[in-house]
Design a protein around this nucleic acid. Structure first.
Lengths: 219, 219
DNA sequence: CCACTATACTTACGTCGTAAGAATCGGCGC
DNA sequence: GCGCCGATTCTTACGACGTAAGTATAGTGG
């Protein structure tokens, strides 16, 4: 039945296990649910037990962000051209961030220069350079694409939140406001309602990304 | 001296005054300092008094974000071409967000569809359309540029934070990590240390923005 | 001068991150 | 077997947070 433990009995806690539990919890119940007590509860453990493995809440959040970027990095490795490499990178990062939209606000305002992430950037630079880019431009483009993806997913995620909040907010653009903004209404109608629900790829994203890549190529 | 008030005496509170005090406080002491009690203290008032004017902390943060976008919007109004209009918009938004970098994390994960912001978007669409853009593309570009700016400033702001945290973090890339990432080190050297301190314009930003505009033009 | 309303204050509750210390386990030498 | 020790978990406690509920004061129209 319930595997009741007594006091000092090892509960199998690991930094990785904690991060994963935290990520799942955030995906399921949102950012506000991410309290030490709640995460512990998810693992059948008291809050203070976590401190043996993660060192504090701030460090835990840093770990979450690192996990996200780690998930997004691999596919850059095999690419025939730098355009293709950047495109793959952008789409994969987008997919990962969208899969964990509630965690996106954490990505912002948290330095991405953990040792692990630095190694990821190095790898990306290596690929881009091998494809014929000058190293300085390669870094510029990597920054540009990463920033663009983060910003875009931020806007998308923002529009789609309010699942966990008291629902007293407007979940779509209210009619009276639409009536005062005819151009906006027209453009919104032209772009039909996002098909496929929350995880469908955003056509607007592809449009802007291609524009960016095309601009890179013409420099 | 200290203008001690008694109980029901009007303290001159306004939604605007509260938002401005909160913004200044955030700029001065960071996001963590933004508690209702602390904001009240800044205005010589108890925390609960604020609730008469702002309706809750979440609403207050929404208000902060709205203020930022409102500051960034006007200059789009006078532009000779849509490229010029978008460029001005991007640079102004960038400048505003950089001037309040600590507030940037709030922009992410907060829907930008307050009535006021909708009107701003409508205005922007009007300008872009008058410059000859199809309305659907105009909206696409507006989203793309906004997302790009937010993402880019997010990355910059993230690198520059840690002024307010216990300073136990690394504030630059530590040497041992640099040694393991030669390409990154080389690219970082090629791009000399950001001149002019925290508020200088980022050359990387201009590069990516121009690439994006050029890409738009070629569609 | 008196009710009425707007405004600010007081108190209180539950939750948060986490410091300090007590309790319990697994595994070691003997 | 026994005693001990480091690792791991739990308990308790503190101050700060957002805010619901209720109270007191100032200004205002009669």
């Amino acid at each position: 039945m319930s595997p009741k433990r007594t006091r000092g009995q090892n509960a199998g806690l690991t930094r990785q296990a904690i991060l994963q539990a935290a990520l799942e919890l955030a995906d399921r119940e949102g950012l506000k649910a991410l309290s030490m007590r709640r995460i512990g509860q998810e693992l059948g453990v008291e809050a203070m037990s976590l401190y043996q493995h993660v060192g504090g809440k701030e460090a835990l959040l840093d770990g979450l962000v690192e996990q996200l970027f780690t998930q997004a990095a691999p596919p850059l490795a095999e690419a025939s051209s730098w355009e293709e490499g950047l495109r793959e990178y952008a789409h994969t990062l987008m997919r990962v961030l969208l899969a964990h939209r509630d965690v996106v606000p954490l990505v912002v305002g948290r330095p991405a220069i953990t040792p692990r992430n630095l190694r990821l950037m190095e790898e990306a630079l290596r690929i881009l350079r091998a494809a014929g880019l000058p190293p300085e431009r390669a870094l510029d483009m990597l920054y540009a694409v990463t920033g663009f993806v983060v910003g875009h997913v931020a806007i998308l995620a923002a529009g789609g939140r309010d699942r966990h909040t008291p629902a007293d907010r407007l979940q779509a653009i209210p009619d009276p406001d639409l009536r005062e903004t005819p151009l906006l209404a027209e453009a919104a109608r032209a772009q039909p309602a996002r098909a496929g629900g929350r995880d469908a790829p955003d056509p607007r994203f592809g449009f802007a990304l291609e524009a960016m890549l095309r601009g890179f190529a013409s420099l």
